[in-house]
Design a binder for these strands. Structure first.
Lengths: 252, 252
DNA sequence: CGGAGTTTTGACTGGAATCAACTGCGGTGG
DNA sequence: CCACCGCAGTTGATTCCAGTCAAAACTCCG
């Protein structure tokens, strides 16, 4: 079903090489695709839908989730500008994706995407690296879900948000929290109430402060890191905290 | 010990081609590597070690895990014959791997492995498919850990074990449980006691029976599936239960 | 037969879920 | 401009599932 590699290379056009003569990046191959705008809360695709496209987030934040049985929802990740979604060898999607606020995306037909990957020795390792980073993030999330308590989960999440935000490392940066408490709860394996209580507790202890529902300020980053609880046995504090697809995505 | 398909390429030599002229498989490229034997409970590699090799399990079962802070362990997966481990773009391993019982493996230098992948248009999609299956399994595990109760977790796990085992679909097949209760607990985000109690409950209700610690028999598979709780909203019962790397690995 | 490690079982505790009431905010329209 | 509504979030009271602590039973060895 997928690209048998040696397809002719003509029809894969890259319209806007950022720097002439430079190698293509995964982001660059999306550049000639039109930007599609979605309102808040719209579905991009559903689990088990035929996987016809690969998407790249241009603007906004999306949630990735699965539903089981009686409607329980587990959010497996959030997508930020630059992130790819829908990459797989299956012919149906593994999960559903919805916009959180308004969002803009570009899409690529899956077959064309696979051809592009197969034909380009530059793109292949980039894609491979992304999958590896996603795998690393998934594993960290499994550790969080199986062994951390509510406070550790929330602190880990807040630090992750802060990372996604500011490459600006200034200590007391505002951190945007685009998702609702319910999204956070479904991501962290908790309930809204527990998320809310734990947030309040962090505020009361002066570790963070809130400015409306969707902005926080981290007041004591080191305390937050300690409370997140994931340093590892070998090398002490491990901000290592991977999670980042950033290394690979020069984003935007 | 299983049948490779063959290769007709120059330096990727496969010692025991079964059908001449067939495409190489990921399994086949390991065939000229020596088999290494490890006793029970040995470490293959540790998280953060320099990632020098890629391994393939030949025989036995391994556990993949991460340790956080004060020694809490989360097992992120189990490896069976045919499975690959250590594939990544990072130069350190993301997790630790240990043998459960005695095990045999083959190893491949990471750089040579990557070369082999890069050079072969047949191998690339195979590897890609494996990574996608791993990703699917990781997501199912996240759902399990964030939204299932103890019984659902255990039932899901037992069904997974049964799948890994018998391609033999005979209804009341013995299922080997090579890992200890502690391994199961650390995989399912529970404690030994809860695993034990839940097992006892399933036995008492006549859903499974045990024959020693490491063998069970599934008496009511349909009940077990119902208790596992993961059918999905869209298409009713979803034994879909992916988890399998089997599609890709002709194993044993 | 003995001893160590693993598993099972029991009694109790505790952290997060559940159930329920209330607050605060943003929008809408009188 | 303010009253009203609806929704998201907070806070409180209580419950309950799984964790903890402790002891007994079973297995696998030598």
């Amino acid at each position: 079903m997928y690209a048998p590699s040696n397809v002719a290379r003509q029809n894969i056009s890259v319209s806007k090489p950022v720097v002439a003569g430079e190698a293509p990046t995964l982001s660059s191959i999306f550049h000639d695709k039109p930007v599609e705008t979605f309102e808040a809360g719209r579905t991009i695709f559903c689990e088990d839908d035929a996987a016809k496209h690969v998407f790249q987030v241009v603007e906004g934040v999306l949630r990735v989730f699965k539903i089981i049985g009686d409607g329980r929802r587990a959010i497996t990740g959030f997508l930020y500008p630059g992130d790819l979604v829908g990459v797989s060898m299956r012919d149906t999607y593994l999960y559903s994706v919805e916009t959180i606020g308004q969002a803009k995306i570009r899409r690529f037909s899956r077959t064309a995407f696979q051809d592009a990957i197969n034909l380009s020795p530059e793109l292949r390792p980039q894609l491979f690296a992304i999958l590896c980073d996603e795998m690393a993030a998934a594993q960290d999330q499994m550790v969080l879900l199986s062994r951390k308590n509510a406070e550790e989960r929330l602190c880990t999440f807040l630090l992750w948000l802060a990372n996604r935000m500011g490459s600006a490392k200034d200590p007391d940066a505002k951190v945007k929290v685009p998702m609702t408490r319910l999204d956070m709860a479904d991501y962290l394996g908790l309930t809204i109430e527990t998320v809310s209580r734990t947030m309040s507790s962090l505020v009361n202890r002066g570790i963070i402060s809130t400015m409306g529902r969707h902005d926080i300020r981290i007041l004591k980053r080191d305390t937050l890191m300690r409370l997140a609880g994931d340093y590892n046995a070998h090398d002490g504090m491990d901000n290592g905290q991977t999670y980042s697809r950033q290394a690979v995505w020069p984003s935007a």
